[in-house]
Amino acid sequence: MSLDKATVRRIAHLARIEVPDADLDPMVKELTGIMNWIEQLKEVNTDAVAPMTGGTDMTLAWRKDTVSDGAQPEKVLSNAPDKHDHFFSVPKVVE
């Protein structure tokens, strides 16, 4: 499998990573290498195995519906680069 330049540019944009044009070619090569490495998994016969997203047989643990968290706006906002009263503050985004 090989990726093209346009695809890599698009993926970078969707992930909001700025990639200068000069870096695109090396990145295409690098990502294609990773993809090909992963593709080796296709060599394993999985006909009798149901699709899975993890390696364990476990299922989700549930918690009770009780209010046990929150009421800590100072802590929640303590890393905010910009804030106003108890709001996070960001450059204006309007539809």
Binding site: V76, D82, H84, F87, F88, S89, V90, P91, K92, V93, V94
Partner: peptide, 9 residues
């Protein structure tokens, strides 16, 4: 605010 959006989570 005129130039900021405020976020409430």
């Amino acid at each position: 605010h005129p130039t900021k959006s405020f976020i409430d989570l």
